[in-house]
């Protein structure tokens, strides 16, 4: 497949992104109590969704790597983890922008917030583990760590939720009911972001492939 400006996926993506922004800005109604700030929500939720989707892919690819030991599954896990980090960062950055005007604080220890932050740390640790020289042992160990992380995520979520439900709840995190038009905008955003994930995954996989080709050629030449 072509990449860059020649790829059809790139142009389709650009087009539906513009449509998406239009839908969010003009089609979806302004929320009554929160006002226009609520519109951050569409990107916020969509990037959080991609962050979780990427985690599932990391898990599946890690299991597959331990089983099949092909370079491609490791590439898939690494690329997915990188993109997951990008989108979780977006979630963490856009969240406070909404929370500050609405909850009057940049951060609370809501289970979702805490889990997202821990998820971000795990992604970063995973990438740090993969970083450096791409030896066979690094890939194998990273796959093991990826599996440990995914096992840990539900533990983090349920323990933080349990903690918060025992304590008095200061703010309910999602007191928003969506109107049908808002739902359209949200599902469109989720769809667009998933597509963006696929696109980024694709180009990252290609660049990883290229990296390995260069490495092999070098080894051949200077052996």
């Amino acid at each position: 497949m072509k990449h860059g400006l020649k790829s059809p996926l790139f142009w389709i993506l650009t087009l539906i992104m513009l449509v998406n922004i239009y839908v969010i800005a003009f089609y979806a109604p302004v929320e009554k109590t929160m006002g226009i700030v609520q519109k951050v929500f569409y990107f916020h939720v969509a990037s959080a969704w991609v962050g979780l989707l990427a985690l599932c892919v990391v898990f599946a690819a890690s299991v597959l790597y331990l089983w099949k030991r092909s370079e491609r599954t490791n590439n898939l896990a690494l690329a997915s983890a990188e993109i997951g980090t990008v989108f979780i960062s977006c979630t963490l950055l856009t969240g406070p922008l909404w929370a500050y005007p609405i909850w009057n604080t940049w951060w609370t220890w809501d289970p979702r917030l805490t889990t997202t932050l821990v998820l971000w740390f795990m992604y970063v640790a995973y990438i740090a583990l993969q970083g450096g020289s791409a030896t066979e042992s690094r890939k194998r160990l990273a796959a093991v760590y990826g599996i440990i992380c995914v096992v840990n995520v539900p533990l983090v979520f349920f323990s933080t939720r349990w903690w918060r439900s025992i304590h008095p709840v200061v703010v309910t995190s999602e007191g928003m009911a969506l109107t049908p038009k808002m739902k359209v905008a949200m599902f469109l955003s989720v769809g667009v972001f998933s597509l963006l994930y696929v696109y980024l995954l694709n180009i990252r996989l290609k660049s990883l492939d290229l990296e390995q080709r260069v490495k092999r050629l070098k080894a051949e030449l200077f052996a």
Partner: peptide, 12 residues
């Protein structure tokens, strides 16, 4: 890398 890998897993 050890503490970096360790701490997120230890949160619960």
């Amino acid at each position: 890398l050890f503490p970096i890998l360790l701490f997120p897993i230890l949160i619960p």
